[in-house]
Design a protein around this nucleic acid. Sequence first.
DNA 1: TGGGGTGATGTAATCGTTTAACTTCGCAAT
DNA 2: ATTGCGAAGTTAAACGATTACATCACCCCA
Lengths: 349, 349
Amino acid sequence: MKDVAAELGVSTATVSRALKDDPAISLATRQAVAEVALRVQYRPSAAARRLRTKSTSLIGVVMQSVGDGYIGAVVLGIQSRARELGYQPLFFATEGRTDLESQALEVFLSEQVTELITVSPSAGVPHQAVAEGLHVAVINSDEAVPARRIERVATGKVSAVGPVWAAEPMIKHIAFDDLGAGRLATTYLTELGHRSFVHLRGPNVRSSLLRLLGYRQALTEAGLWPQPVLTAAEPVMQSREAAVADFLNTAEPPVAMVAYDDMSAVAALHAAHRAGWRVPEDLSVVGIDDIQFAAYTNPGLTTVAQPKHRLGALAVDAVLERDAAEVTVLDGELVIRESTSAPTSRGPR
Amino acid sequence: MKDVAAELGVSTATVSRALKDDPAISLATRQAVAEVALRVQYRPSAAARRLRTKSTSLIGVVMQSVGDGYIGAVVLGIQSRARELGYQPLFFATEGRTDLESQALEVFLSEQVTELITVSPSAGVPHQAVAEGLHVAVINSDEAVPARRIERVATGKVSAVGPVWAAEPMIKHIAFDDLGAGRLATTYLTELGHRSFVHLRGPNVRSSLLRLLGYRQALTEAGLWPQPVLTAAEPVMQSREAAVADFLNTAEPPVAMVAYDDMSAVAALHAAHRAGWRVPEDLSVVGIDDIQFAAYTNPGLTTVAQPKHRLGALAVDAVLERDAAEVTVLDGELVIRESTSAPTSRGPR
DNA sequence: TGGGGTGATGTAATCGTTTAACTTCGCAAT
DNA sequence: ATTGCGAAGTTAAACGATTACATCACCCCA
């Protein structure tokens, strides 16, 4: 504010008033101030404003949790670790609207946040954020580029290092081993004795491509590639269901399906149910994520669990310790329920 | 801080140092300061501290949404309305630990928050909060006491006023019409021609009791009371499932079930599936909430939708406008899917 | 010629903490 | 006696904005 004032040869009081469009300030001055403020990227300090005005524009919200899905669990992990370290998380849900992302960043900059975590997908924010000098960590990023230092974390302990990964310098990545999960799910099915497969693909983001790759690798190793892949690019349940329904029309049981994630698997179960395919007799399904719901689908969903809480917690650590690994990879774990079985001899449909 | 300093006849600098346990301050003084600080309920100003130190202990978190369950949707409603009005929500998930509730309040007080919203259940916070002079609104409170002014909001518009309700002066309540939802669900089943019912009760909180009451009222009016009620006091899926499984063992189809909420209904569907009961042929199930998942259970769940987003938005308004109604009630809406049908003549199990 | 009004801006205090730099005091060593 | 030194505080500036009050130039009208 001082800078803006100095540049125009006026007092900070004038600037303050001009920015509030106080009619006491001449129009010419107001415009000049607005122009300079924009040019020098003036950003008001929320702290100073609050201190002076004693009004914070803050609404406290207390709740138990924030849902049992993938993001909810990650958020809980972030929150609990952040508080352990004396930090206060400031959440911003974009509701899928890209325009809100920059708005989120703007809010954070005014709050003088210096650490930012994003839970993918969330487009450009991370890059804008590093440009502003923030320390940023991305959980399950959508992007990929070669990395310099990677730590692979297997169920609890740091273990190895490998060159698979993605990183813009300055952005820390915390990621689930999507490729491994795809393989794990697929291998489980091949070992069960399945020969006829199908993969229900997710949207065109990293995690989806890697899971597909895992599916492919596992099948190639088993000598079963190629096998069909269903595309439902939009994360919209209807389109997933439709894709599965179309496929089931032309296929013969038994089939083993690897779904992009638990929600996709749920859509598949729904489609199967409607098409009269029995699970797991006609169709084995395995998901990825292990959301709370997965235990209560009919039948219970076999899935590769993602360490969601831990992803959140590690992101906090990554963003706070400047020297942490660029990329941290966490392994999934197979959770076997009732949606999978060995292929049955073709029974009555 | 000035007060503490004055009371002890020392400078604020000393107090500041003493509170950080700076060894430059004599032990005696440190203890004295700590004691007085506690007595006068000294609460540091986060804003001032940030302004001075330029370190905010804030971590920005960006994500798409926060889950598709009941709370996630409410939270989205809160956030979007708050931002529209230029407010910044500060979320705190207690993860069910009651001790964290006071901690949440403590954080908010340091942030000089003056408006608080809680999404039930969340025990004592609201009362502590009013004691501290905050304006508080509770969404779907667990408690009940006579109210002075109620507004009933039916699908969009404020319409009537009635004397059913709960309010500690100073606490605004935004609530879903649980009783009405219970009735609506039940009546739908009676009109379908069902004669044999069962209700799967939720935990011992207001919403659960009211839904049960609605079930009872509707059946009484239809001349069908009494009918069984299953109790699964803990919001634990296992116990719900077990209760349903036990019941199905001794019952004869067709049965019509009103579940406490969608998650309970899911547990019921799961139990039914395992017990070999067909839905909806043997068992009709209706839930309450309409979480995103409800559309994808097998079969799709008929449910009474709660206007979740709106509950959140209205809570923001309530907390910001001091003169709003003490209690606002929102109506549910029946969403018909495939988990319900007219009772069938007893088919083969 | 002066009094008063008005429009545009400046001055300076203030919000609650932190912290660099300084003071004060008692005591020991010279 | 003087000096030096550490312990225990104090003083005051600073953080970045807001705002009551003061100032100033200029014009209008008597």
